[in-house]
Design a protein around this nucleic acid. Structure first.
Lengths: 267, 267
DNA sequence: CTAGATTGTCTCTTACACAAGACACATGTA
DNA sequence: TACATGTGTCTTGTGTAAGAGACAATCTAG
């Protein structure tokens, strides 16, 4: 087959090694890229820019966008020549929530947690091999630490990432984690072996804490939610200031684990 | 088997206009049909049934579904050979909400309304020429009247429909409303002219009430939300028992209009 | 004013995605 | 046992959708 699915956002594909000239792409793939691009940019985009953004011929994008707008997956934005997500996608998304007990209850639980503790709380899942914040609830601190829903972060940067990978073969993990993923935002570099060991300990412990990984001021506490099959299907986590006392951290972890366990009881 | 859906969610068709025994369909269109079909059925569907449902060759559906699952727009459901909407669609849907002030505030307002009044409240919009319940909040009656989000109902059956069409040309309205749409669930038949007159009066009055249209026990109160351009962009409505007193109905309408007006003030 | 960039629509060609259909492997049921 | 029904993977041909490019309109500088 071809290069399989080169569908990984590719916001800016560093060197120009990819894209072997004008290979003809399937329309559906173009569409998937369009959606990813809009998701990555979080705003309405002009059709011309869209074509540039997904690196596709203008004429193609015009026709595809027309189809998508007609179908309601996209909508023309205010000024008239920009597009963004449409109502249909919202409706399908709500269908997903409705059909997905875990997500529905998880959202609820996360909202509760952040209200009760005052800290930012998040529901996280693996999304085609990437760590994804599926739902987050801001917390009540004056300077609150928040992250956008749908944000995708390299697995090694997070506590949840360590839990989500528990139970996977080493080879699979190596496959999911790129070299770049091991470089933290501040430039420090994790060793793959250390990361894999973290995963094992996190899986065994049933929770995970990371300090100062994505930024220097926060600590991340996470607990796993299990599927009926016993796999880690999601995590819930709390983002707290890095100087939170040992004692309070312990309490929060206990709380988190209890809630995660409750979520694991699938109907 | 399938079907038997009393509330006609649309018997057939999708974004395609002329469906002459589709010999060779574009992949993207197949996908759009798949999504519509899943939305109409509100549950995971086996790939074989899916192929039947959208009237497409199995081999095609297999490849398309694989692409969609890889991309995360669909997910394999529990037993392993059924598919339903995936996380990506949820994320895109949330992006839509985030990018859409009206929807975000409208949902909020509808939730407030149903909590304050105890009645079922809904946010409604036109979705490619069809009336759509975009968000609904159940109300607190013992036997509550509720409708599923994303349900599409013929425009003439509803109070909101009359408001949403205010300002459209007669020809456009005629185009949007099919013969079948004029037949109420109980078999009664509306006259197109009456309906169009209703639209005019509703538009002029700035609210609309219908009694016993979709069923014999409810009254529907609706008020329009205007876009900056002065067009009716959405409605919020309350579904109340048909024997609600004139006085209370009047109060609710006043409340509804006030809230709708507040929503109309776009930033 | 001209020169350049951008937008939306069109036409034509050909590479390839859709479709048909064969296959192996499960099931269930008479 | 045979016999139907369903599932998932292949291969192969051809109708057509993706892409190149030309076009007029519309901006926006300078």
């Amino acid at each position: 087959m071809q290069d399989g699915n080169a569908l990984a956002v590719r916001p800016e594909a560093g060197p120009d090694e990819d894209k072997i000239a004008g290979s003809r792409e399937k329309g559906l793939n173009r569409v998937l890229h369009i959606l990813e691009f809009l998701h990555a940019n979080q705003r309405a985009i002009g059709i011309g820019d869209l074509a540039k953004g997904v690196n596709a011929p203008r004429s193609t994008i015009y026709t595809l966008v027309r189809s998508l707008v007609d179908a309601g997956l996209l909508e023309m934005a205010g000024d008239g020549n920009r597009v963004y997500f449409g109502k249909k996608l919202y409706l399908y998304g709500m269908d997903y929530v409705r059909g997905n007990d875990l997500l529905r209850r998880g959202r609820q639980e996360v909202d509760n947690l952040s209200r009760e503790t005052g800290e930012t709380s998040e529901l996280c899942m693996l999304q085609s091999g990437r760590y994804t914040i599926v739902h987050s609830s801001p917390g009540t601190r004056p300077f609150r630490i928040s992250s956008a829903t749908g944000l995708q972060i390299p697995l090694p940067w997070t506590a949840s990432g360590r839990l989500l990978l528990a139970g996977f073969e080493r080879a699979v993990i190596e496959d999911m984690v790129s070299e770049d993923d091991l470089v933290l935002p501040d430039g420090r570099r994790l060793l793959l072996d250390d990361f894999i060991e973290d995963i094992a300990t996190a899986g065994a412990a049933g929770y995970c804490v990371t300090s100062g990984l994505v930024d220097a001021y926060t600590k991340c506490l996470a607990a796993p939610v299990f599927s009926a099959a016993g796999k880690v299907e999601a995590t819930i986590c709390l983002v707290v200031p890095i100087d939170t006392s040992e004692e309070k951290t312990g309490d929060l972890i206990a709380l988190l684990r209890e809630r995660a366990a409750r979520l694991s009881i699938t109907g």
